[in-house]
Design a protein around this nucleic acid. Structure first.
Lengths: 341, 341
DNA sequence: TTGTAAGCGTTATCAC
DNA sequence: GTGATAACGCTTACAA
């Protein structure tokens, strides 16, 4: 294996100079720099990142720490998109990137901080992490730079950033869309009660309803853990005795579950029941009818997260909260019931 | 950061002993080993993997090198499952795991070997790689241990293994299943012509047909690149002028495309057209009707690949070709047409 | 058994 | 500008 020494020898300089030349240090002669670069090329030398990490103080490795990969992603590749985005972003920044799944995946009782230490990781992107996770608390305490996906801290910390869409705004728009189409008897299929996005989305629905003079308090709200099966069960039970005109769901997967429940009860979507989802997962365009939903770009979310994290690590993060665009995507799962009476 | 020195000091021994105690070397006293382990625990010491990798000759890092992530996986999480399997497997073996996406993702012109060298990677799992890829050739030449997913080498190499299912057998079973249900006029929606699995699956179909006294030569065979959109277009054009009783598709995604084409032409599945897929992707159970398919376990495939690679690296691989189980999964997309006449 | 010390391939801090 | 040389944290001969 060709090392920096070989380059140094062949170029007739010392290793120090080679290192500097390769890393664009200012204090190296122009002719020597060129010669070094050239011989490095000839020898097909590429620096050993492991050695570099050990030697340099700066940790240019970031990590994705993710929980709940096992469950949801069986049927949904949002996390994968996010993951690819992070990978892509870290490539662009020439960072090294590693991963750490947690939850049922994790056999060893190792803290995130420990994980990072072991691997010389300078910062982490956290997904699906609960704010009360003791390991997460430790990260904040130890001031390990973090970027949270889809979560905002109550009180901003200098070392932790966030990347998300305006979930509240989005469900508000979604609900208003339904209201415009004449829907008032709207039921809600929410995700996990404790999830930050869930709260946000729920208050978005509430705002929309209240602003249109509708009530929120007595709404049927179900929690289906962002899972289609659970959504199916809950919707089915409910629909056996109730007839809302619309269901707003906090994920496309759950929307799919609701639609299936409706169809199994002989109801047609959107004729008898309108349904909206969230995420624009791949499934949203595949069901029939296609699901009207809020599209968010998870790949971009990952990319931005990597960039933000890098800025935080470098201490040059101007803003630590990034809001991405979303888009209301109309498909065929909503009926305009203003026109028919 | 607590290092091996700290443990050594506190335990009153030298660093060498600590290292040996931690790595279960035989030549260390029982009482001292215990003492070392204990103080390591007290100090919450966990060895720095980067330093370890640099120091030890043995590379305990493996990598996934994957091409074509961008395209297919928009709608299909097989690769993600594979990926998680590899991660899980390498965790079990206490290996470090990194990734390298290639294709349109790859901006820099860096070879796989170089990538591995830079990161002290001992071996790689390759997915979606073409056998004529020059970078792959280099891997084999340089004798970097590899495990191929879903591909078998023409002539076995000591340093390269394979994990796959018996694709030929599987499509043969699938085709026989159709034949048993009375189908003879069977069209084929294949994937990418050059793909290894594609060839295998195609000859499986051929074998089944021939053994049942049916012809293969004049069969309509389409190549849709494992993509639902392309499958849709090709099936639609074909179905406008032809009426096969069944379509065998080499992926569920394409089966979905075919079903959509049929339905858009006013044909009902399975009443007017039977369809079978491959993979048991998540979509297979979500369409209506559900797609009868060959289920393969990509997670397990990844896990086994990691283990096999580890064995190859250690030079203790008895067998370098691993065949996983698959299962014919009956859903509702096939009609038994023997009964109706 | 245990301690000592020479690496592993870099980067970084000095003198020169 | 450039060249020694000491880290970085660990493994591993080799001595003791």
């Amino acid at each position: 294996m060709v090392s920096i020494k070989d380059v140094a020898k062949k170029a007739g300089v010392s290793v120090g100079v080679v290192s500097k030349a390769l890393n664009n240090y200012p204090d190296v002669g122009e002719k020597t720099r060129l010669r070094v670069l050239e011989t490095a090329n000839e020898l097909e030398y590429s620096p050993n990142r492991v050695a570099r990490m050990l030697s340099s103080k700066k940790n240019s490795a970031i990590s994705l720490i993710s929980s709940g990969f096992e469950e949801n992603d069986q049927k949904d590749n949002n996390s994968f998109e996010l993951f690819k985005g992070i990978y892509f972003g870290s490539q662009q920044l020439n960072l090294d990137f590693s991963i750490y799944f947690t939850d049922s995946f994790k056999q060893e009782e190792q803290s995130y901080v420990q994980f990072c230490r072991e691997r010389n990781i300078g910062g982490a992107i956290l997904q699906g992490i609960r704010l009360d996770d003791p390991f997460f608390k430790e990260m904040v305490d130890t001031e390990v730079p973090c970027v949270l996906i889809d979560v905002l801290m109550d009180e901003p910390q200098p070392c932790v950033g966030s990347v998300t869409i305006q979930n509240r705004e989005a469900t508000k728009a979604l609900t208003n869309y339904l209201i415009e189409k004449g829907h008032e008897d709207i039921a809600i299929m929410a995700g996990t009660k404790e999830a930050y996005v869930n709260e946000e989305r729920l208050s978005g629905v509430e705002e929309a309803l209240l602003e249109s003079g509708l009530t929120f308090e007595d709404r049927p709200v179900f929690y289906a853990d962002f899972d289609d099966g659970e959504a199916y069960e809950k919707a089915k039970t409910f629909l056996e005795t109730h007839r809302p005109t619309a269901f707003v769901c906090f994920s496309d997967l759950m929307a799919y579950g609701v639609m299936r429940a409706a169809q199994d009860l002989g109801l047609s979507v959107p004729e008898d029941l309108s349904v909206v989802g969230f995420d624009d997962s791949m499934i949203a365009g595949m069901t029939s009818p296609g699901i009207t939903t809020v599209a968010q770009d998870f790949f971009e979310m990952g990319r931005q997260a990597a960039q933000l994290l890098n800025r935080i690590v470098d201490g040059e993060a101007d803003e630590t909260e990034i809001y991405l665009n979303y888009k209301l995507l109309e498909r065929e799962s909503v009926k305009d019931i203003t026109k028919q009476q």
